[in-house]
Design a protein around this nucleic acid. Structure first.
Lengths: 239, 239
DNA sequence: CGGTATATTGACTTCATTCAATGCCAGTGG
DNA sequence: CCACTGGCATTGAATGAAGTCAATATACCG
């Protein structure tokens, strides 16, 4: 059983619309292919990079699901995000040439490795790529603003509702159901991301279940009333 | 009294080490000068840009002090950061060509306006500038990771202590005292940034005062025991 | 000098945490 | 195939940290 030599090529990758949604001519597209040097598989539970390791590349997720975490000296850990197919991780490493967070696969995953010096080189020549890299970084900054808003000003139920809506929205953009999802992470990881304890996350799920807003069975989750979730996130102003 | 035409030039700006700390030859430096088109003054309380406005430029702060805020539909506001001389704001606008936060001057301020299309153009030609722009964005991402850690996993006293240490560190890097500072923002703004109510911020300051760690008189603050603050942020592990 | 912003402090409440017991499920080996 | 194990999830009861409401106090600005 000879393995095919998998052609690593953005030009015929079905995730391109998520990962590199730019107007490029054929020639430019082929040049982009040069940047994506290799792919890499990461087993569930293994890390793609760890805090302190030398930064060399950005990674585009092809399949699988990651969490990124930062930690304090005294061992507390904070989940800073959950990433899925088409999303880019590793941006934290650019500033100091070292990664400052861990990226751990929550299920078996495959990523495209994009050596950053090659990416910089090519984006000097392909304007659309240059701007795209800037947009990816800006998007991450804006995403984090949203998380700060969540952590700084929302109550537990609002946080959990916002989390679920965000997750299902991103899954739906990837062709999954808009109402059904499987949580790839534990209650503790959700809690860490949302600034809550795992018991609070569990209780909130149960409460949403009692209210008929969602159906929760361990990690299987069905959203029955997305509008209700939305109203929990954005309490209506009367008028 | 004829005003001097102020030469807008990074090449002889005393903030260069903060804002553009790169190895550049004289010729490159002069090209950078071209990017910084103009300066702009912002009165205390006025905004440099607002959420929804068209994005055109990044801004390097020359003097003064800013806060950036995001808001929910239902009017809740979250301070996402406080910025001072040498720091760059506006990165949030790149992704969608619109700003997604407000930048408000907390004291009379002056900024250098850097049209972003010019910046992209020039960074295709000056490698060091390209990499510097990437580092600035990455630094902002890492900073926000730190805020997420703070908001998600620290208690009120830890947050306030971390906030004070961070602020005084940045001020000291700009030549100010390592122990004395004037808070440019209200208790409410500090609270919003830290995910606390203004009363909690006030009480925590008072507690630190009672414990002899700081001396607080309204917005004037003197740090008496920085080590104690550090221990509050990072509770010592015994060994 | 007066009025408004901001800050401090106290008393009480509330929401989330903590601690603890129990339940559920997937994977492993007898 | 079933029993066992260990990790994960749920739920309850008690606690506690921060929030809320309210009453001053202080300072800043026109």
């Amino acid at each position: 059983m000879l393995p095919h030599t998998i052609k690593v090529a953005c030009s015929n990758c079905n995730l391109r619309e998520l990962c590199m949604p730019m107007q490029l001519d054929q020639q430019e597209l082929e040049r982009i292919d040069e940047v994506v040097a290799t792919r890499k598989s990461i087993k569930r539970g293994a890390s793609l990079f760890r805090s302190g390791e030398k930064f060399t590349s950005l990674y585009a997720i092809r399949t699988g699901f990651f969490k990124t975490t930062v930690a304090t000296d005294d061992g507390r850990e904070q989940v800073t995000g959950f990433q899925m197919a088409g999303e880019i991780i590793g941006l934290d490493g650019i500033v100091s040439d070292k990664h400052s967070c861990d990226a751990v696969a929550l299920e078996d995953a495959e990523v495209c490795v994009m050596p950053f010096d090659r990416l910089e080189e090519l984006s000097r020549e392909v304007n659309a790529l240059q701007h795209h890299v800037h947009k990816i970084m800006s998007r991450e900054i804006v995403r984090e603003h949203g998380v700060m808003l969540l952590l700084g000003s929302m109550r537990a139920e609002e946080r959990v509702a916002a989390f679920l809506l965000n997750l299902v929205k991103r899954l739906h953009a990837r062709g999954f159901s808009r109402s059904e999802l499987v949580l790839r992470m534990t209650r503790e990881e959700i809690g860490s991301y949302l600034g809550l304890k795992l018991e609070t996350v569990s209780r909130t799920f149960s409460k949403f279940g009692d209210d008929g807003i969602v159906e929760v069975k361990q990690r299987h989750l069905r959203i029955l009333d997305a509008d209700a979730l939305q109203r929990i996130v954005n309490p209506q102003v009367c008028h």
